[in-house]
Amino acid sequence: MNNQQVAKYYALLGEALEDKYLEPDMDEDIDDMSIHLGTLLSGHTVLELGCGTGFWTEVVAESAQSVVAVDINASLVDIARERGMPEGKVTFRVADALDLPEDIGNEVGKITAVLVSFLWSHLNKKEQEGLLATLKKRLGKDVLLVLLDDSFVEGFSETIAKTDADGTTYEILTLPSGERFEVPKSYQSDSALRKRLGNVAKDIRIERVEFFWILTCKLK
């Protein structure tokens, strides 16, 4: 990942990454997204990018045929491995989503769906375009692509601290230790998402709940 601040922040956050899901008002949205993901990815061989501690990996593994779960942080992958996933369904890999190994997915055969979990919003425009180009090159057309990410919620989400010359927006995130990190974070509108993916994807659909949004499409 080009911005190593993001990777370092989440590595240091560790298990506390899931603390945000303890927000009582988020319960209904988590349930809705879990059901939706389970339906979308049922029977698929899934490549998950940005699996973190495996919160959503565990959701997907319930209905998917199999999952290859990838994260850049070995420490987070170690936490995810301890979740007790369905036997034989999940393979974990430590890798950068922007520089995927050529053999990714070989453990389970042909990948039929990709889930990008809360990673898209941390990528700048060039990185987003690079990720899409890599997926298209490695996986070919008609693969289902699912982007799951945060919606901006007043009073809950961090405020945008700055915007750089390329239009990338940044938040200041603070660890429980008090250490602060400036990381890229975007909250894209439906129109911006459609514009970004329009050249490489078809059948784009976007749904939003209060805390999350989910985009589904097929690579051209």
Rank of each mutant, 00 (worst) to 15 (best):
W120Q: 12
K195W: 06
R196Q: 15
E48K: 12
V116A: 12
V90E: 03
Y21L: 12
N73G: 01
E158A: 15
K136E: 09
P24F: 02
F55E: 04
K202G: 09
S34I: 10
Q4D: 11
A64I: 13
T216M: 05
L144G: 00
G88H: 02
E107R: 06
V209G: 11
E15G: 00
V90A: 06
F152A: 14
L144H: 08
D27W: 05
S42P: 01
I35S: 13
H44V: 02
S34G: 15
L98W: 04
K136P: 00
L17M: 10
S75E: 15
A74I: 02
V77H: 06
I35F: 13
Q65L: 11
L175E: 09
T159I: 13
S186E: 14
F212W: 05
E158K: 06
V59Q: 09
L17Q: 03
V60F: 07
S186R: 10
T216F: 05
K89Q: 08
K110V: 05
E207D: 15
E28R: 13
G105H: 01
E15R: 08
L49N: 06
L173S: 12
E48R: 07
G178W: 07
I160D: 14
A95P: 07
S66P: 00
L175R: 12
G155H: 11
A16N: 11
Q188L: 15
M26C: 05
K162G: 06
I72L: 13
D150R: 11
A69E: 07
E18M: 02
A69G: 05
F55V: 03
E154I: 13
S63R: 15
R194E: 15
A161C: 05
T57W: 01
G84A: 01
I172D: 06
E171P: 03
K136T: 13
K110N: 12
L76G: 10
F211L: 08
L131F: 05
G50Y: 05
E171K: 04
L131I: 09
N124Q: 02
F55S: 06
E179T: 10
G178F: 08
L47K: 04
